[in-house]
Design a protein around this nucleic acid. Sequence first.
DNA 1: TGTTAAACCCTAACCGTTAGGGCTATGTTC
DNA 2: GAACATAGCCCTAACGGTTAGGGTTTAACA
Lengths: 192, 192
Amino acid sequence: MTVPTTPTGRRERKKAATRQKIADTALRLFLERGYDAVGIRDVAAEADVAVTTVFSHFASKEALVFEQDQGFEQRLVQAVTGRAPHEPLVPALRREIEALVRHCAGDGAAPVRRMIDASPALREYEESMALRHAESLATAIAADPGLSQSATACRTIARFAIDAYALAREAADPEAALDEIFRMIEAAWAVA
Amino acid sequence: MTVPTTPTGRRERKKAATRQKIADTALRLFLERGYDAVGIRDVAAEADVAVTTVFSHFASKEALVFEQDQGFEQRLVQAVTGRAPHEPLVPALRREIEALVRHCAGDGAAPVRRMIDASPALREYEESMALRHAESLATAIAADPGLSQSATACRTIARFAIDAYALAREAADPEAALDEIFRMIEAAWAVA
DNA sequence: TGTTAAACCCTAACCGTTAGGGCTATGTTC
DNA sequence: GAACATAGCCCTAACGGTTAGGGTTTAACA
């Protein structure tokens, strides 16, 4: 079910190395020269691979920036499926989203965030990604045997949670914003 | 403030006519042959204009499909700013969104909806458009002198409302879904 | 009537992305 | 160990959305 952290064979190791080299090179170039000023052909040349190889590892130029997309989604789902028995849903969601917001607001991620915010294409991609995450989250919530909400309520809460993530990231005081938004989500969930 | 329904001069009339001809031609071709099977060059040729003219009227190929984008946004904002004095916010929002959902689920719009749902590019564009609308809506809500909510609460409710629109559209029974979602939104707004 | 600029045209390109087809090294089977 | 199958990579060429550059017409207006 989970991806092995260390691939077994030489082939898989080499593949993972190629992927990582491409991602690292791309991010470095993007930060050095700006996302729009770097072409896929530049990335490929600098990483010493063919253009087609880049696209065999990443579905689009934007995807190069959001390399850990999957981990992100898994954490969200895990926060729901892996929470302690009888632990209520919303606080568990909140905890995870708070961690994710902290991670994105951390110092290390600041230049990347600036880059994303400066590029409409990247912002759009990020939001579209978030919606996919909301779908996964909704599925996970709907599958929880301890909850018996309608499918609509599950999808609604999932989207609200993703909204919270997006809004908190942009807020001047992310912590306070999360407080406020999750009070609202809690109330919404209570009447569902 | 509002766009004049009938442009005054000949130049503006011709411009509007060109724009409309392009939009009509594009939609017709898209529906006839499929969105992906029709290129911008095809649209331009059939509408008897230059490719550059198409892009001087529409920012992208996707924008050709969502021609009434602006009207959409204006209606949402209007539902907030133009509601009766002392009328509560959420029911006004709900009324407008219900009307919009009905409009999109109507028979006339069915082929267009099928086309949108069949194209990832169009779906993504639509969601991104909806987020812009949420921003406008948030601004309108925040500007209401009768309300005294935090900026975060306003933006949150705006996004929730847009979520309601998206979720209801996809639901098997849009009316019932709206009922359910707006009960949640009402509760969220009450604690804001 | 002459001037200005908006709307339009054409050509040529840029850039992300994909198709087609070939090569090599890795993993597997006999 | 030899033979095979194929995953991963390469190259070239193209497609399609989008834009830059620069020219022409014509409505608007002094």
